[in-house]
Simulated assay, not measured.
Amino acid sequence: MQKKLSSVVATCVVLALSACSWLPEKTDESKNVPVTKLYAEAREEMAGGHYEAAIKLWERLETNYPFGNYANQAQMEIAYAHYKSGDQAQALAAADRFIREHPTHPQVDYMYYLRGLISFNDQIGLISQLYKQDPTERDPKATRESFAAFKVLVDRYPNSKYAPDAIERMRYLTTAMAKYEVHVANYYYRRGAYLASLNRAMNAVSDYPDAPAREEALYLMIRNYDKMGMTELRNDTVRVFNANYPNSKFTRAGGNNESWWKFWSRSDK
């Protein structure tokens, strides 16, 4: 009986396999779509703001046609589509992938520019937000990453059509980073952490000498030196401050009531 059952099972298996061989193979219809059609469809989705649909089409194009200009363009478009859809992590990953795989591509300068834009948009509004939250809770990582990407673009491709805009954005980022340092310095000063405040103010002065926030940073250095009893360093900083900002809003009459200001202000006359 056991042998008979085994024979029946074996026969069924053979029949099943034979039936499968008669069935037509399942094919991926998208593989037969011409590259120009996939490209046109993806561009149409992009133009309509349907970025998720566009990304799928770009990925399909790259999979079906992995070599040549269309594949390279698809990679760039994927990064841009993620950027437009607000997916920062995927956008950065896609841009980095292109830069890594195509370091000599004629349009790699654009990918550095896009990388800067991705991080730049993450920190837009930093200055306006500083006074709405604890500054130590705000990570300026995106600001630094954006600046670094733009700097690579400007240094390596000074003649790129994206370089002028990158330079302008770098100026803005420098202002933002300096203001962040000063805001943190103020945060520590208000809490009596004068050494920590001094260090952040000094960072702003040394790292961002051309930023508008340098004025307030020097002013904070004076206040911290005074609080810590470092009279000589305070007076040296006062002389630098007065030479650079003789009409500073931070030291105008009525702008500050601390006795130490009156003391060292008189000592310089």
Rank of each mutant, 00 (worst) to 15 (best):
Q2C: 01
K3T: 11
K3R: 15
K4D: 15
K4A: 15
L5N: 09
L5W: 12
V8M: 14
V8I: 15
V9I: 15
A10V: 14
T11G: 13
V13M: 12
S21C: 08
D28R: 02
E29D: 13
E29F: 11
N32S: 15
P34C: 05
T36H: 09
A42V: 07
A42H: 09
A42I: 07
R43I: 03
E45D: 12
M46T: 10
Y51M: 03
R60E: 13
R60V: 05
R60L: 13
R60G: 07
L61V: 02
E62P: 01
N64G: 06
P66D: 08
F67L: 08
Y70N: 07
Y70C: 00
N72M: 09
A74L: 04
M76W: 08
E77S: 15
A79N: 05
H82P: 07
Y83M: 05
K84W: 04
Q88M: 13
Q88E: 13
Q90H: 10
A94F: 07
A95Q: 09
P103C: 06
T104S: 07
H105G: 01
Q107L: 05
D109G: 01
G116V: 03
L117H: 02
I118F: 09
F120K: 00
I124C: 03
I124Q: 14
S128N: 09
Q133Y: 03
R138S: 12
D139C: 03
D139F: 07
D139V: 01
E145A: 12
F147W: 10
A149E: 09
A149M: 09
F150Q: 04
V152E: 13
V154G: 06
R156N: 11
R156I: 00
R156L: 07
P158T: 00
N159E: 14
D165Q: 09
D165Y: 01
I167P: 00
I167G: 00
M170T: 04
R171N: 14
T175G: 15
E181T: 00
V182H: 05
A185M: 05
N186P: 02
R190L: 13
G192L: 06
G192P: 07
S197I: 01
S197F: 05
L198W: 11
N199Q: 13
M202T: 10
S206M: 02
D207A: 12
D207P: 00
A211S: 07
P212K: 05
A213Y: 01
R214G: 02
E216V: 00
L218S: 05
L218H: 09
Y219Q: 00
Y219N: 06
L220D: 06
I222P: 04
M228C: 09
G229W: 11
G229R: 08
D236R: 08
T237D: 12
T237A: 14
R239S: 10
R239K: 10
A243I: 02
Y245G: 06
Y245R: 04
N247A: 11
S248V: 00
K249F: 00
R252C: 14
A253N: 08
G254M: 06
G254K: 02
G255W: 07
N256P: 03
N257Q: 11
W261Y: 13
K262N: 15
F263A: 11
W264N: 07
S265F: 10
